[in-house]
Amino acid sequence: MIRSMTAFARISTQTQWGEVCWELRAVNHRYLEISPRLPEEFRVLETRLRERIAQLLKRGKLDCTLRFQTDTATVGFRLNHTLVQQLLTVSTELAVLSDNPQKLSALDLLNWAGVLEVPAPDMDSLSTPIMATLDKALQQLLAHREREGAQILRMIEQRCEAVTQEISKVRAQLPEIIKRQRERTKARLSELEQNLVQERNLDRLEQEMVFLAQKIDVAEELDRLDAHVLEVQQTLKSDKAIGRRLDFLMQELNREANTLASKSIDTRTTMASVNLKVLIEQMREQVQNIE
């Protein structure tokens, strides 16, 4: 199944220590690049996070953000006795030095940063729900990728069919194009023969005939275009990551379309090559976002 590399997922879970929330954002990238953003106390989970993601994703730049909000109503607060004692000591020293001494109230102490502390979360009990929530977020991300991938698949299949129709159109027109070119060539050769016989330079006549024959022959390019389109259609059925292979096939399709344009001897063939390049470019833009 085709997967897009662009997706978003957000899953949150309530634990005994507070709310755990994973937010995943993925964009296209040549390789798999994971950028975790974790609170400092959860850095120990980074290795497990990378391993879990690498099992499911093959390409894309993924930003993984973990947010943790402590439930103070359940966990409660803890008084920093050391800091309180230091503040009281400093307050006493200031009272001795001051002409107008004022004692610190309990409210003043509570307003001081760090006096009330939230107990550090227990990683042994939190790691399981954190990783389980990550798994849910990854499944949501994959579902998003697959929905976009299905849309990309339909678009590429439509363009492949259009490419095949353009190739068939050129093949159908070739006999008439070749016939008209032969008539023009005969007229040209008759004119050349008069000059060349006088100059006794028959090599030049042979070169002209070879050049014209090469210009007419586009059968090889059409066959290769057909083969590449067939390979694209077969690749789309694969269950593996196919983005890089499709990107290579788009380059080959474009190469053959350019060759067809350079060999064109008729406006209809030129227009067909232009249409092919437009269709191939449309596919190439979408392929850049396939895993």
Rank of each mutant, 00 (worst) to 15 (best):
Q233N: 14
R145H: 08
L189M: 13
D108H: 14
F42P: 01
A143G: 10
L66N: 04
Q151I: 15
R188D: 08
T164G: 00
Q288R: 14
S4D: 10
R10M: 09
R30H: 13
K103I: 01
E161K: 06
A95C: 05
N275I: 00
Q288N: 11
A73R: 12
I216L: 12
S12I: 00
L138Y: 03
R200Y: 01
L116W: 05
K169L: 11
D223F: 09
L205A: 12
E40C: 00
M271D: 15
A137V: 06
T13K: 14
A7E: 08
D71W: 03
T269R: 02
L230G: 00
H228Q: 12
V84S: 10
K169Q: 12
V44N: 03
A106F: 14
L79W: 14
R37F: 06
E281K: 02
V287E: 10
D266E: 10
T269E: 02
T70V: 15
S125D: 11
T133A: 13
V44K: 01
T15Q: 04
N201K: 12
R204Q: 13
A113P: 15
N28E: 09
T133N: 02
E148W: 11
Q14E: 15
L79N: 04
L212Y: 05
E193L: 13
P39R: 03
K240Y: 04
L116E: 03
L38F: 07
Q282H: 06
L109R: 09
R67G: 12
R59L: 09
Y31L: 11
Q86V: 09
D223K: 07
L116I: 07
N289R: 10
T65R: 10
L253A: 03
F8A: 05
E146Y: 11
M1L: 13
M209H: 01
D124S: 11
L153W: 13
I178S: 01
A227Y: 05
R48A: 14
R224H: 05
A95F: 00
S12E: 15
D217S: 11
R245F: 08
R147G: 08
W17C: 04
L192C: 01
K237E: 14
I290N: 08
K215D: 07
T6I: 09
L32S: 02
V115C: 08
D239E: 15
S262D: 06
M5I: 10
R180D: 12
E33L: 10
L79V: 15
H144E: 13
N254K: 02
E193H: 05
L87G: 09
N100D: 15
R284I: 06
Q214I: 01
P175Y: 08
A227R: 04
E199S: 13
R145D: 07
Q102L: 11
W112G: 00
E148G: 10
E46N: 05
R3I: 03
F77M: 02
D247Y: 06
G60W: 08
R52G: 00
L134I: 03
S105H: 07
I11P: 01
M209D: 00
L222F: 06
E146H: 14
R200F: 01
D99V: 05
T13P: 03
A7D: 08
R25S: 10
L153C: 14
Q165D: 12
Q181Y: 12
T82Q: 15
P39K: 02
L32Y: 05
D124N: 13
I34G: 06
A95H: 01
I2A: 14
R30M: 07
Q55C: 11
